[in-house]
Design a protein around this nucleic acid. Sequence first.
DNA 1: CAAACAATCCCCCATTCGGGGGATATTTGG
DNA 2: CCAAATATCCCCCGAATGGGGGATTGTTTG
Lengths: 195, 195
Amino acid sequence: METKVLILEDDIVNAMHMQVVLESAEFEIIGIAGNYIEALRLFVNRLPDLLVCCIYLNNGEVAINFIEQARDIKKVPVIYVSAHDDEETLNRVMDSSPASYITKPFTDRQLLVAAKCALHKQMRLSSCNTTPEPTGRELEIIRHLVKGESSRKIADTLCISYETVKTHRKNIYKKFRVSSGYETVALAFHNQWVF
Amino acid sequence: METKVLILEDDIVNAMHMQVVLESAEFEIIGIAGNYIEALRLFVNRLPDLLVCCIYLNNGEVAINFIEQARDIKKVPVIYVSAHDDEETLNRVMDSSPASYITKPFTDRQLLVAAKCALHKQMRLSSCNTTPEPTGRELEIIRHLVKGESSRKIADTLCISYETVKTHRKNIYKKFRVSSGYETVALAFHNQWVF
DNA sequence: CAAACAATCCCCCATTCGGGGGATATTTGG
DNA sequence: CCAAATATCCCCCGAATGGGGGATTGTTTG
């Protein structure tokens, strides 16, 4: 059974973008609302399993009011979408215990990960960047790693010592708190260091 | 210097979606055209470095005519976007030597990969599915692999023998023509088996 | 029904990896 | 100007991988 999703977002382009992305991953969009009243009407009629809410609407409405009313009808996980990646907004929505929080602009992947996490009731934040960046050389090695090249081969193609490549890998593991090449490759995709 | 892109697509939602995606990856959209004439006007005025073209427009126009005229002015790589994933359409556009070919619905990743490949003059097809699917058990193992778990650990959590996990991995390598866990993880992300 | 597929398990062996030590030179930023 | 960051190189060792052989059970499906 598909997960029913209600989107509260007045930017129609962004809303339709989200619709396309979510529909490509077994989600059923039961409606797109541009304001509070419309959202509540759709909510009571269709009883969605997941809410995707823009925090601030252009007409001045704030999603939190709607969320609180909706909660009285049916408890559902919420993904908050924000255009502002600041701590104040973050703290504000945290009080209403969302399931996910992503900031614009976000990638398809970020939205999908947020949605999946929301359904599994795992909190997920995609904001207030604390992730370090790989250095130029590190990124180069990560890209080769993604292609499945061994440290020996990477060393040959980059014309550096095998030991140097190993050192870079060890540094990457420490910096990003992973412990294998596999996790590094996964990380590279999540952070869009590679395509 | 950013790569200048011209989009020929009359579905405005899809066009804006592509704009958002491409702009998030160092591409500059110099214009969106909904028809042949408009596209040619934008082309001669702005001389883009890359074309993204819907093959069939709703008004009955076919992009190939436009492409051939544009080619006389400036040679640029072309990404063809098609709603039909059939061999006939594919053969038809192949004759005009596109740089990439993707079918709707496509993911952000597919579009970006196509764009990057186009710029590097590497042909890329995202159609006529020839990619085999992993079996249930194989997919399960792939997901654990992405998390960085070793074959031994996977065996423990799935309560099967270490040798069995190795066999599954070997089968995966053969089936998808890869030769390492790293490539498998990369493949899993490309094919959206994981998020 | 026979053949293909899926999932399970076993052995061998060379190569690679992960993690633990170091060291030195160059670039860069405050 | 000097400390921090970056990039380079070296050794050791136990564990894991990749690639090559097999084999046995069910299940699906043409």
